[in-house]
Simulated assay, not measured.
Amino acid sequence: MTTTPTVVLVHGAFADSSSWNGVIDTLAAEGIPVLAAANPLRGLTSDADYIASVVDSVDGPVVLAGHSYGGSVISVAAQGKSQVTALVYVAAFIPEIGESALELTGKFPGSTLGPTTRPATYRRADGSEATELYIRREEFPQQFAADVPTAATMAVTQRPVAVAALEEPAAAAAWRTIPAFALLTTADKNIPVEAQRFMAERAGADTTEVDASHAVSVSRPDAVADLILRAVRHNL
Rank of each mutant, 00 (worst) to 15 (best):
D47K: 00
S46V: 03
L87I: 14
A52M: 02
A48C: 02
A65Q: 11
G80H: 06
A38S: 06
E103C: 05
T112I: 15
N39M: 15
R123D: 08
I51A: 03
V58W: 10
G66T: 10
K107D: 07
K107N: 06
A38T: 07
S111F: 13
Y89K: 09
A29L: 13
V62L: 11
A48M: 01
A101M: 13
L64H: 09
T117R: 03
L113G: 07
G31N: 09
G98K: 13
G60W: 13
S53Q: 11
T45G: 08
L87A: 12
G106E: 12
K81N: 02
V63N: 03
L113A: 08
V88M: 01
T121M: 05
A77Q: 11
I32K: 06
R123S: 11
V23G: 04
A37K: 10
D56G: 11
T121L: 04
G22T: 01
T121G: 03
D59Q: 07
S100A: 11
V34K: 06
E103Q: 15
L113W: 11
S100V: 09
A77Y: 07
P40D: 09
K81A: 04
V63G: 02
G31K: 05
S46N: 04
Y50H: 15
A120C: 14
L113I: 08
V62Q: 10
L44F: 05
G71V: 05
Q79W: 01
A91M: 08
L44M: 10
T105V: 14
V90D: 01
A36R: 08
P33K: 06
T117D: 05
S111M: 14
P40W: 07
V23I: 03
V73G: 10
A65E: 14
A86K: 00
N39L: 15
L102E: 12
S82P: 08
T121V: 11
G60C: 14
A28F: 10
Y122W: 14
P119G: 11
T117L: 04
V55L: 07
T105G: 09
I32E: 03
L87K: 07
L113C: 04
S100G: 07
S82E: 13
V58P: 11
V90T: 06
E30W: 06
A120D: 15
T85A: 15
G98N: 13
P95G: 14
F108M: 10
L104Y: 02
Y122E: 13
R123M: 08
